[in-house]
Design a protein around this nucleic acid. Structure first.
Lengths: 339, 339
DNA sequence: TTGTATGCGTTATCAT
DNA sequence: ATGATAACGCATACAA
């Protein structure tokens, strides 16, 4: 069943059918109705490949996700996916597992391969983005919550993020103000010497410095965004160092691993050892006891990303670099102060 | 840059280029190399729309998810998405929010609209699937972990599921054997009189019956797959009924809401009130205390679904209806026995 | 207001 | 082994 068949059935030319289907105004009302009726009756759906071939317009928006295993991202994909559907586009979701520094190449191949008209990248490392890449890419891209981008070169693409350094600084300062001097930091990968992790680590170090506390490398753990690994690493740490009084984990997923390790080490969360997570996921609120966290505005981040992308695609906006606010939510996991 | 340009640059005809690109054997080795070199140099990528138009083959696999907000599904999407990429297909992800009983229509529209060559449905209600629908659909579909399908008509489509009734029965029986007589059940939506929820409810009721315990409607709660709602509902319940000694929640997401409600009601999890969840998510293991759960084999479910679908698409398999095993994992949230 | 004819970039058939 | 050419289904410039 194609446009020719419909034309024949309706007793009109193919172009008239095409006009009706594309809501062109120059069709007599009666003709339009006649055509629509036939279309309805025969369950006709235009062949999108032919349409795309002709119009050079795929109506595809790509989402490139570095680590969908992270519920923080999968919730964002959820929100973004709804908006994409609503706006008549199709979401092409691709997960990337490539090592650092190659995300930009994956992105390029993704765009070419699927003829995308715009892309949102969730996570990933775009430190080596430059003018040549932007010129090659041609379609608007929005980097959301990415680990890194080139701060020297910010033209031609958009960025939506939080201030990771500041957020980590605030969380650490909170602990320091409460008298903690032996704080462990659980990051995802400490070897990654740049990016989101590095900036959170930076904020942590800055705060320590301001309060004249030496940074002890032994208090730095790698949880790889996994509860089980965080659990094991925290347990080891607590066996080695009796004097740890607080742990700051740079994701809630890791924080719950730390939490159980604290309990299993015979300590009480929020009393013997304070705990702060990152992201503001539901679990932090419903854990026992509730875990302090730095809340990221994930709804706002998702909505801003897709709205900005759509605007960019319709030339309704210039590229923007947006930094959204985070909020430190203090809960029972930080109840006790050390004077 | 199209196939014609490449042909011109390589000094050959378009059909030769096409043959090279599609690995046809009847090309001289030297010609093949020459063409490949030009293709490489010019970063040429064939236009997939034209290809699809010609071949009537989209290489698109659809995933229709009912409720990506559920991390259980988003983890499965993650696993499935990887396999799809590996096999050279593109994943088209669509989230459905339509009310019960219309999922089959959404599915049909999805397939037609995106010219899918196969679909996996995660969740949803397919009770009204029938011969006519299957005939209309034409491409293989796999229903994975769906709420319901037509047990009278199982031809022409595949199904991968667990035995929800049995799993719920086992969990309930475990509680009953430990002396619990006042057990609350937290389901997602009790109004949905069929489907996954109904079957879990059924298993629950069956177990009660076997142990000669009256089912009290007041002990049935609706958590809508949300921790916050489960929390509120559980708290209300515990205020009304002092004698509840166990709660069975039909998802871990809801179980953590119940868990916090228990604590906030001044009771101890696993001591005053026992708790069992469903799904086997990480959080059940790392909660404080660890929460008993019914573990679903989500990796196996994901892998089986996509492998079966690919086989079906290549006529390497017939349609199957597979029921996978679950496992009751008993943890500290069920430590205490009653008399 | 409507119909005819052309071309989008491929693949496949048919020559050569 | 290779090249010319006809389709695939659609949108649109142009003609009427």
């Amino acid at each position: 069943m194609n446009i020719k068949d419909i034309a024949k059935l309706a007793g009109v030319g193919v172009s008239t059918v095409s006009r009706v289907l594309n809501n062109h105004p120059d069709v007599k009302a009666s003709t339009r109705e006649k055509v629509l009726k036939i279309v309805e009756e025969s369950n006709y759906i235009p062949n999108s490949s032919a349409r795309i071939l002709k119009q050079n317009n795929t109506k595809n928006i790509g989402i490139l996700v570095k680590g969908m295993f992270n519920p923080f991202f999968s919730e964002m994909v959820n929100t973004i996916g709804c908006k994409i559907n609503e706006s008549g586009y199709t979401m092409i979701l691709k997960q990337s597992y490539i090592e650092d520094y190659k995300d930009i190449d994956v992105l390029k191949a993704f765009i070419n391969d699927k003829r995308l008209q715009g892309v949102i990248c969730l996570g990933g490392n775009f430190i080596d983005i430059n003018e040549q890449y932007i010129k090659d890419i041609e379609v608007p891209i929005v980097l959301t919550s990415v680990n890194n981008y080139n701060e020297e070169f910010t033209d031609g693409y958009s960025c939506i993020s939080i201030d990771n350094r500041k957020a980590a600084y605030e969380a650490t300062e909170f602990l320091l103000k409460n008298g903690h001097e032996n704080i462990a930091l659980m990051v995802a990968d400490s070897y990654s010497k740049e990016g989101l992790n590095e900036r959170r680590l930076d904020g942590f170090k800055q705060a320590l410095k301001k309060y004249n506390i030496e940074f002890d490398e032994c208090n730095l753990l790698e949880g790889h965004y996994r509860s089980d690994i965080s659990y094991t690493k925290t347990k080891e740490l607590l066996q080695r160092y009796e004097n740890i009084t607080a742990i700051f984990a740079t994701s809630d997923i890791m924080a719950i691993g730390c939490a159980k390790a604290i309990v299993d080490s015979g300590k009480e969360i929020g009393k013997n050892i304070c705990l702060i997570g990152f992201d503001g996921m539901d679990i932090s609120e419903f854990y026992n006891p509730p875990i302090s966290t730095i809340k990221q505005p994930k709804e706002l981040m998702s909505n801003s990303s897709i709205e900005l992308l759509l605007d960019l695609m319709n030339n309704k906006s210039e590229h923007k670099h947006i930094v959204l606010d985070t909020e430190l939510i203090v809960r029972e996991s930080c109840k006790i102060r050390i004077k």
